[in-house]
Structure formats: structure tokens, C-alpha cells
Amino acid sequence: MKGLVAVAAVALLVTGCASVGNDRLAGESEQTIAQKIEVGKTTKADVTRALGSPSSKMFDAQGQEQWMYMHSRASADAVNFIPFAPLFGTSTSGETKQLTVIFDDEGVVSNYLMNSSDSGIKTGVFSN
């Protein structure tokens, strides 16, 4: 019995949880981003101070620079910790956030778009 309790304790400690991307974006929402980024006023330096370095930088067809920030978080669902359940499939849930900031020729924000979506992966009998 003590062995089973020890295995359960280790399973609880080794909970499957992972995140990738810009950690500053993790705590942001559309409302908090709107407080930090003002179209026509906020500069590249302001955005960098607020959010750090972007995940990627690119130029669109009109030559405007775009910065992209991303953050994804995923964790194992509770069903994965039921004995023998993972033999029949697994289930994870999480959230993905993406912020695209577009700058004009002077380096001032001309537009931005914040997306947030729930994500999950289910396999086996849990995929229905």
C-alpha cells in the first residue's frame, strides 16, 4: 500500500505542464494590451519595454514592419492520472496567445491584433 501511495505522490509532483514563447504575453489579455499599446502613439521602444523582444519580425507587402509575440501553455488533463487510463488515450488542454504589432515608417504602432484561443490534444478514446 505504501508503494502505491508513493507512486501516486510522484505522479502528482510530475504533472505534465509546459509553456513556450514570450512569458510576458502569458498574463496579457485584449484589455491589458489595449492599455499598453496605443495606435499612432506607442513606439517600438515602448513595445519592447512592455513585452520584451518579439518571437519574430517581418515586413508585409506594403513594407510595414510587423512584430509577432506568441505564448502557448499546455497541461495534462486529470484523466491522464487515472490508473491505466493512458493505455486508452491521453488528453491535454491549454491556451495559445498571439499578438501582432504593425509599425509605420517612423516606428510607431499603426495597428495591432491580439488573438487568444483554447487548445487541446486528445488521443484514443478521448478524441471523440
Rank of each mutant, 00 (worst) to 15 (best):
K2V: 10
G3Y: 03
L4K: 09
V5R: 01
A6M: 11
V7H: 08
A8G: 05
A9R: 01
A11G: 10
L12V: 11
V14S: 15
T15F: 08
G16K: 02
G16L: 07
G16S: 00
A18N: 05
A18K: 13
S19L: 10
V20R: 00
V20S: 14
A26R: 08
G27P: 07
G27T: 13
S29P: 07
Q31T: 13
Q31L: 14
I33C: 05
Q35A: 14
K36G: 07
K36E: 12
K36I: 04
I37H: 06
I37P: 07
E38Q: 10
E38N: 09
E38W: 04
G40E: 03
T42K: 06
K44P: 10
A45N: 05
A45R: 14
D46E: 06
D46I: 05
D46K: 12
V47H: 07
T48H: 08
T48F: 11
T48R: 13
R49Y: 08
A50F: 14
S53P: 02
S56W: 00
S56C: 11
K57T: 15
M58D: 14
F59P: 01
F59D: 07
Q62R: 10
Q62C: 05
Q64I: 00
E65L: 14
Q66E: 12
W67N: 02
W67G: 01
Y69P: 03
M70T: 11
M70V: 06
H71D: 02
S72K: 02
R73K: 11
R73Y: 13
A74Y: 04
S75G: 12
S75K: 07
S75M: 14
A76P: 01
D77N: 09
N80P: 10
F81C: 01
I82Y: 07
I82L: 11
P83M: 06
P83V: 08
F84E: 01
L87N: 02
L87I: 09
F88P: 02
G89I: 15
S93D: 13
S93V: 06
T96C: 06
L99N: 06
L99T: 03
T100L: 10
V101F: 12
V101Q: 03
I102N: 15
F103T: 01
D104F: 09
D105N: 12
E106T: 09
E106K: 15
G107K: 01
G107D: 06
V108Q: 09
V108P: 10
V108I: 13
S110N: 04
Y112T: 00
Y112N: 00
S116K: 03
S116F: 01
S117L: 08
D118E: 12
G120Q: 05
G120D: 11
G120Y: 14
G120W: 06
G124P: 01
F126Y: 15
S127V: 10
N128P: 00
N128I: 09
